[in-house]
C-alpha cells in the first residue's frame, strides 16, 4: 500500500472543527492509497469536501446523487474491468444515503456482484440538511423530525441492522468499525478493498453539531459507544461473524449523558425507564456478539 503519511484528503475542507466524517475520510484514503476512484453520495462529506471549485480530494472523485451512489460505482467498476484496469472503486455515503435513500441501488450492486467497496460513515442522522432522523438513528435520540418533548422521548425506532441486510446479499466481507480505533479501521478498509466482490464497511463517526457535544470529544464519544455496547465493531466473512472487539462494558448512561440528543433522558428529571430500555439494547448486542470480556477474578471495586 501507499505511504500512509501522505495526505490524500487534504486540509482546507469546510467540515466543522472536530468532524468525525472528515477524520473517517482521511483514514479511508490512508488505507486505500492513490490507486482508487471514489464515488461520493450527496451529504455532509460531499458538501464540505467539495464546494466547487475547491476540493479536498487528491484522488479521482465523482459526486453522485443520494440514491445512485452504488449505481455510479457499479458503472465505473464495469468500465474499468472492460478496459483491463486495476484501480479500485470505493463508494462513500452517509447513513442517510446508505440506510434509506440509496439502499435500492446498493442492493442491486451487491446482488450483481460488482467488485467494489461501499463505506458508510454512520453519524446516525441526516446532518447536512439539519439533523433529521434516518434509519441509522438510535432509539430515543432527539432529532428535528423526532423531537423529544412532552409526548415523545425522541426517535421511537431502533437502528436498522444494515450489515446483516448486506450479509444476506452474500457479500464476502462486511465490517463495522469506529474512528476511535484508527488502526483497526485502516486494517478493515484495506481488507475490504483487497477482497474480491462487493464489500461493506460501516464506520461509526460521531457528529459534534448533530449530537450536541464539544468538538474535542469526538473520538472519546466514539470510544464510549463501543465501550457501552451500543455500537459493536466486528468483521463478517461470507456471512458469519469471525472477529469481534471485546470490551469491559460500561453502563449506557456514560455515553448518553455526554450528548445533547439524549438530554431529555436526564433533564428535568432522570428517566430510568427509558435508560433501562437503551441498556437492554446494549445487553442484547453484548449477548448477540459476545463482546463482554469475562474476568477470571471479579473486578477490584
Amino acid at each position: 500500500m501507499e505511504n500512509e503519511a501522505c495526505e490524500l484528503f487534504d486540509s482546507g475542507h469546510r467540515a466543522c472543527g472536530g468532524c468525525g466524517a472528515a477524520l473517517a475520510s482521511r483514514l479511508i484514503l490512508k488505507a486505500a492509497g492513490k490507486d482508487v476512484i471514489v464515488v461520493s453520495a450527496t451529504g455532509c462529506l460531499e458538501v464540505f469536501s467539495t464546494p466547487y471549485p475547491e476540493t479536498a480530494w487528491k484522488v479521482p472523485w465523482v459526486h453522485s446523487l443520494f440514491e445512485n451512489n452504488s449505481a455510479v460505482a457499479s458503472g465505473i467498476e464495469a468500465s474499468l474491468k472492460r478496459q483491463g484496469r486495476k484501480e479500485k472503486v470505493i463508494a462513500i455515503g452517509g447513513d442517510g444515503a446508505t440506510f434509506d435513500i440509496g439502499i435500492l441501488c446498493l442492493s442491486g450492486a451487491f446482488e450483481r456482484g460488482h467488485d467494489f467497496t461501499y463505506i458508510c460513515y454512520d453519524n446516525e442522522a441526516y446532518m447536512n440538511t439539519g439533523i433529521q432522523r434516518s434509519g441509522a438513528t438510535p432509539y430515543d435520540a432527539s432529532t428535528t423530525t423526532t423531537p423529544a418533548g412532552r409526548c415523545s422521548y425522541g426517535n421511537p425506532r431502533p437502528k436498522k441492522d444494515m450489515p446483516a441486510i448486506l450479509a444476506a446479499h452474500g457479500s464476502p466481507y462486511i465490517a463495522t468499525t469506529s474512528i476511535a480505533y484508527p488502526r483497526d479501521m485502516i486494517e478493515k478498509v484495506k481488507r475490504a478493498i483487497e477482497t474480491q466482490g462487493p464489500t461493506y464497511v460501516q464506520v461509526h463517526a460521531p457528529c459534534c453539531t448533530g449530537w450536541g457535544f464539544e468538538g474535542e470529544k469526538t473520538v472519546a464519544i466514539a470510544k464510549l459507544a463501543l465501550e457501552t455496547g451500543l455500537f459493536v465493531s466486528y468483521e463478517m466473512v461470507d456471512g458469519s461473524v469471525v472477529k469481534v472487539k471485546k470490551v469491559l462494558r460500561k453502563p449506557v448512561e456514560e455515553y448518553l449523558s455526554t450528548q445533547r440528543r439524549f438530554r431529555h433522558l436526564f433533564k428535568p428529571k432522570r428517566n430510568d425507564a427509558e435508560i433501562a430500555k437503551i441498556q437492554a439494547i446494549a445487553d442484547r448486542n453484548a449477548e448477540k456478539f459476545g463482546i463482554d470480556i469475562k474476568l477470571k477474578k471479579p473486578a477490584a471495586e
Binding site: D10, S11, G12, H13, R14, G17, S49, T50, Y52, P53, E54, T55, A56, W57, K58, V59
Partner: peptide, 18 residues
C-alpha cells in the same frame, strides 16, 4: 458536469475559524 483541481481546498485557510 464540472471538475475541480485536486486538493484545491488548500485555498481555503480554515485557520481563521480558530
Amino acid at each position: 458536469g464540472c471538475s475541480a483541481r485536486p486538493g484545491r481546498a488548500k485555498d481555503n485557510r480554515t485557520g481563521s475559524w480558530r
